[in-house]
Design a binder for these strands. Structure first.
Lengths: 195, 195
DNA sequence: CAAAAAAACGAACGGTCGTACTTTTATCGT
DNA sequence: ACGATAAAAGTACGACCGTTCGTTTTTTTG
């Protein structure tokens, strides 16, 4: 029982990486299996369909994001520091050298946006929750009076997300070195307007 | 000679639409051919490889964007009106009911961002040029003194692009109805800070 | 209107995909 | 240490992929 879960973790870890580069659809059982040095059928047995694999990959990714970005932010002092920490961690996540394929959520969002099924449902739920987490953190900064009392926190969350997407685009497609500075400048302007 | 180009246009028109939904990789010769009521081999003969088809699809898309978004903007009075017109047209482009599959550039950007080849090269060049067009239009608004003299127009272009990406994400994945209002609010704030 | 050229077709190819079976190998409780 | 059970491998399948090639149909041209 314990061996099975162990290899399943190995599979999901690798799949999670590949999916960032090739998408959930481009993730194939063959490449995944041979890359892990095991047989396609042996791998397949851990999931009962490809859709189930895709779903579990998204679940894995969400857990990783939680521990790599959300958790450190929540550990920071509530209010503005927490919001800054979130943005910092998120930027780092988007171009993590350990994940040279890019952010799986961006890839999955584009791929699943008009295809229904369990993977899409999960992704949408996770993204909604993330958005609300951002807004909630922003609200703590309103509580500490670091941000305007009448601030629209959902709007702020939207704009933060937009900056992250813009950063990803410039970094990954255009391969510029500026986008981090651009993203930080945009974030600073966002906070200035929210103060 | 004229008949061939005519059907080629029909092919590219349909391919351009499909690629927005399924991506350039998900665009398949079979579905494209049967959807057009012609044979796979007959279609294939117009391009000599799938990569060539993908490239020409991107070229078609760029021309469409040019006439649907850029041209109307350039026709508007220079300065702020032109910049607003660009943003308006772009928002409309991103959720054009005639293109229910979503923006092909967003799909292609994610798909090609770490795969090289002619399609990627073309896309990158087109995106760079688009970015510069935005910055140039912003510069006209600086010239008319509608925007700050010390404005960083490339930064402005980056942030406009980010807003568009955020709009696309919320509209297509989350399927919210608010994102247009959110995008416009973000754009208004952007202009306010640039004035 | 016939000859030449272009366009479309149909069938087949090697390859890869996800999935279903059966068989072999490894792990684990007793 | 052995029998039960879980994990992995092996094989095969039908479907679809991009591509090739020879043939047929359509269009253009002299």
């Amino acid at each position: 029982m314990t061996k099975g879960l162990e290899t399943k973790d190995r599979i999901l870890d690798r799949a999670f990486r590949i999916a960032g580069r090739d998408g959930l659809g481009g993730l194939t059982l063959s490449t995944l299996a041979t890359g892990l040095g095991m047989s396609k059928s042996g791998l397949f047995a851990h999931f009962r369909s490809k859709e189930e694999l895709q779903l579990q990959v998204l679940e894995t990714a969400t857990a990783r994001f939680q521990e790599a970005v959300i958790a450190p932010a929540v550990k920071a002092p509530r209010g503005l520091p927490r919001l800054r920490k979130l943005f910092d961690g998120w930027l780092r996540w988007m171009s993590d050298p350990a994940l040279p394929g890019g952010c799986i959520f961006v890839a999955a969002a584009v791929e699943l946006d008009d295809r229904d099924g369990k993977p899409r449902d999960f992704l949408v739920a996770a993204q909604r929750q993330l958005r609300e987490t951002i807004a909630r953190i922003a609200r703590t900064a309103v509580d500490t009076q670091e941000l305007r009392r009448d601030l629209d926190c959902e709007q702020l969350a939207f704009e933060i997300y937009a900056i992250i997407l813009g950063y990803n685009h410039d970094k990954r497609l255009l391969r510029e070195d500026r986008p981090e500075a651009r993203a930080r400048a945009a974030f600073a302007r966002l906070l200035a307007d929210a103060s």
